[in-house]
Design a protein around this nucleic acid. Structure first.
Lengths: 140, 140
DNA sequence: TAATACCGAACCAGTATGGTATTAATTATA
DNA sequence: TATAATTAATACCATACTGGTTCGGTATTA
């Protein structure tokens, strides 16, 4: 029960981009070096972030990446879902049919986990990268 | 970000055992049939639960399994941790050294996730199987 | 001593993880 | 318009994890 390494890296990437001066873009080499992420793997991650529409890319000389929207509008959950797909603690919280016992909604474990999951995702949705980058700068 | 199938099965197993009349034990075949869990796989799961000291086993004729302690004292988190090991959202929440960026405790993502994880595990710890089996019986 | 049940370990196919490598497409600029 | 800089796309790879299955061993009891 852990986020992927790629997701951890993606957090760093978004935080990095969120900390950039308005309008400035970062290329993958710079991100890789400053955030200490394997360059080749980072490129793969960047493509996920672009596909997931969290980041915009520009090719060619002086190309690079920028956030696709304001840091305030990007939450921890957004990054997680782009990197790992929807967050569902149990198979049967995604689709009822996934429960091999076929208890439908009657299983009390299911019911409890549904509530816990709702609170969990809410908490992840409430943290945005504008806030995070703010704390990051305080730190220094 | 999903619990293993084995963990889901384990929830059913504990719920099953928690619903048994005082002192009664269930053998793996009965559990497999009633909870619709592949018999061979269930045996593996039972061994994990025994090793994790959530369940006690008795061999031989009329052998089987019982909860090792009262259902009240077994939480969702207990089952999860026995089946999957400690719950840590990020590598660096487990060990500082796991952060390849080496930011120690200064990373704001780390800090936020630590809080979220604490609430998450608290919620999982607060749900016990005495409560769950109560709801299960109401249902019928 | 035979039947019943759990124990332990090995094994297996399929998929995910964490990377790497290569080639193609694009674009600013000299 | 050539060229250097950059991302895009795809394929590949070793290793580990997942969700099982199998089989011989061991304890218990009638």
């Amino acid at each position: 029960m852990q986020f992927n390494q790629a997701t951890d890296y993606a957090f760093r990437v978004i935080l990095h981009l969120a900390g950039l001066p308005e309008g400035e873009l970062a290329n993958s080499q710079a991100i890789a070096e400053q955030q200490n992420i394997p360059a080749g793997f980072l490129q793969k991650i960047m493509r996920s972030l672009v596909k997931g529409e969290l980041v915009k890319s520009y090719r060619g000389v002086d190309g690079g990446f920028v956030l696709a929207t304001s840091a305030e509008k990007i939450s921890l959950l957004d990054v997680i879902e782009v990197m790992e797909g929807p967050l569902d603690l149990q198979r049967c919280l995604k689709e009822d049919s996934a429960c091999t016992k076929g208890c439908g909604r009657k299983c009390p474990v299911h019911a409890s986990l549904a509530v816990i999951q709702a609170n969990f995702t809410k908490a992840l949705r409430e943290v945005n990268f504008a806030g995070l980058v703010g704390k990051d700068k305080e730190e220094r």
